[in-house]
């Protein structure tokens, strides 16, 4: 099991491992969502191996930090991070989407140790996070709530209901990370239904906005640490990402939102990810 908290270099290595897990798991399942899993990988890796106060041996520890993947279809990245962090045995990863598996097509909190909230229907996770953050304030716990939302998901009106409420209650114990990968199921986000100027929208809703390259671990870690330390209100980290990041033929290609690679494609992807990993060493 990996030691934590990791250095930035170790996080980069772990992110590559998580990317390999994602490719293998979706290839074996012959279904799943690689594009949005790979765009969120560096952020999720930084959270689970550096930022979050959690205990894999006690996944429902009341004082733990909470993580919600509101864009629940990207759950392969969550499953891989939890398995690598020791919440459950890695052998489960080969059972994604199979009958009887703990790893449902969208995450189920009652089946998987470490999943803090069931997700899948979009536009709900930030509201759930607001509820967790309010409960933390009321119960005087110092846990932090981390919510990853999608840019396509930001078309859901309920995201903005949640944004308004987090600002009303000055929730400084919640951070939303917008995985701004520019693509959704059907097409480009900003052609299908534009969300720009998205940073200004969040600021107008009362959030502090921090913009980063969502694949630069040297930027991700301080942004997350800063968000945790900020008092007085919620923070939105606008993480500019690449859908399918790390696999050449998937990057910025809409079709890889919800398509599984065949074995040959997976082998190529794993080769590319491992080569990048070696370059970083």
């Amino acid at each position: 099991m990996a030691h934590v908290p990791m250095s930035v270099d170790e996080l980069k290595q772990m992110a590559a491992t998580v990317r390999c897990d994602i490719i293998e798991m979706i290839c074996t399942a012959e279904a799943g969502h690689p594009g949005g899993s790979l765009s969120a990988t560096d952020i999720v890796t930084a959270l689970y191996f550096r930022l979050m106060n959690i205990d894999p041996a006690n996944p429902r520890w009341p004082d733990r930090d909470r993580f919600i993947l509101s864009k629940g279809h990207a759950c392969p990245v969550w499953y891989a991070a939890l398995a690598e962090r020791g919440f459950f045995d890695k052998s489960h990863l080969g059972t994604l989407r199979r009958m009887g598996s703990i790893l449902q097509g969208h995450p189920d909190m009652n089946k998987v140790p470490g999943i803090d909230m069931t997700a899948g229907s979009l536009g709900q996770g930030l509201s759930v996070g607001v509820g967790m953050a309010l409960a933390g304030k009321l119960k005087q716990k110092d846990y932090h709530v981390w919510v990853v939302i999608g840019d396509g998901e930001s078309q859901e009106g309920s995201i903005w209901e949640a944004a308004m409420s987090a600002a009303k209650w000055k929730l400084d114990n919640i951070t939303a990370i917008l995985d701004r990968n520019n693509l959704q199921n059907d097409w480009h986000v900003d052609e299908l239904m534009p969300i720009e100027p998205v940073a200004d929208k969040w600021r107008a809703f009362g959030w502090q906005v921090v913009e980063i390259d969502g694949h630069d671990m040297d930027a991700i870690v301080p942004a997350l640490e800063g968000a945790r330390q900020r008092t007085g209100g919620p923070t939105l980290i606008l993480a500019r990402t690449i859908k399918g990041k790390g696999v050449s033929y998937m990057e910025n290609v809409c079709e890889w939102h919800g398509k599984a690679p065949c074995q040959a494609e997976a082998d190529q992807a794993l080769g590319e990810i491992r080569r990048d990993q070696e370059v970083q060493l």
């Binding site: 909230m117 536009g123 509201s127 607001v130 009321l138 409420s165």
Partner: peptide, 19 residues
């Protein structure tokens, strides 16, 4: 406020934390 969707999902989040 007039935001029932947010209210019910937030209630779910509160319940996960023991409220």
């Amino acid at each position: 406020g007039i935001a029932e969707q947010n209210m019910f999902a937030a209630a779910a989040g509160m319940a996960t934390a023991g409220l």
